[in-house]
Amino acid sequence: MANNYNEKIDPFLDGELNEEEKAAFKKAVEQDPELEKEVRQNLLLREVVETGYQEKMRSDIRRWKSEAKQTGTAKVGNIRKLGYRLAAAASVVIILTASIFTLIVPQYSNDRIAARYYEPDNDLGMLRGNNDADILRQAFENYDQGNYNGAIPGFQRYPNNDKALYGLGLSYYQMEDYKNAIETFKILAGRNNLEYTEKAEFYLLLSYLHADQTGPEFQELLNKMIEEEGYYVGQAEGIKKKLDSFWRSLR
């Protein structure tokens, strides 16, 4: 056996040998069956160790999932828990509403509901890439500075770019140009881009509300968001609750 190669088995398997050493080692393995056997034994052992690591990871995953379910963090199959929370929230709302009726009722206007459930997309900064074209980067900078009107032409330059389309929709939304926001978010939602679909649907829903377009398209979207239990399910359910509220009928 080529004893001097024994100590190189681990560095070889760890990718720590340079090209020259690697070539020499491989040659030695080809020529020395005993060394080849040792390499195989080491590989086998590593596979066993990897299995142990994966088993531990698997048990951690199960534990974390179960912890999440116990603390109510996980929502899958947890509709009942969600229902209790909504019921509790609704009770509080009802008590408060009864006492300050005149202050509460106006809050059930479409505009107020949309504003209540609006949340800014703080991910927008993360969406930017170093490879973005200067115009697109500038558009995002304008958006950041609140210059939505200035951001729009930049975003419009990239109609096929989902990131730009998203920025465009948000800019229209911020400018309260809900007609264009609706058109833009509709296109984006239809593209089925994992990154943007849910966000586009959420802002589309809010845009419909602001524009007082609460017809079949709005209802269909709202129900879809609730049924699919996506990221914005809490907001969608809250909106539905508000819309179905008794107090809203008093407007």
């Binding site: 974390w64 994992l194 699919e228 239990e229 996506g230």
Partner: peptide, 20 residues
Amino acid sequence: IHAVIEDLCKCSYFENTIFR
């Protein structure tokens, strides 16, 4: 790595997306 895997395990959005 542990933090990311743990956080994803506890993220209903992630779980729902995979299941769906």
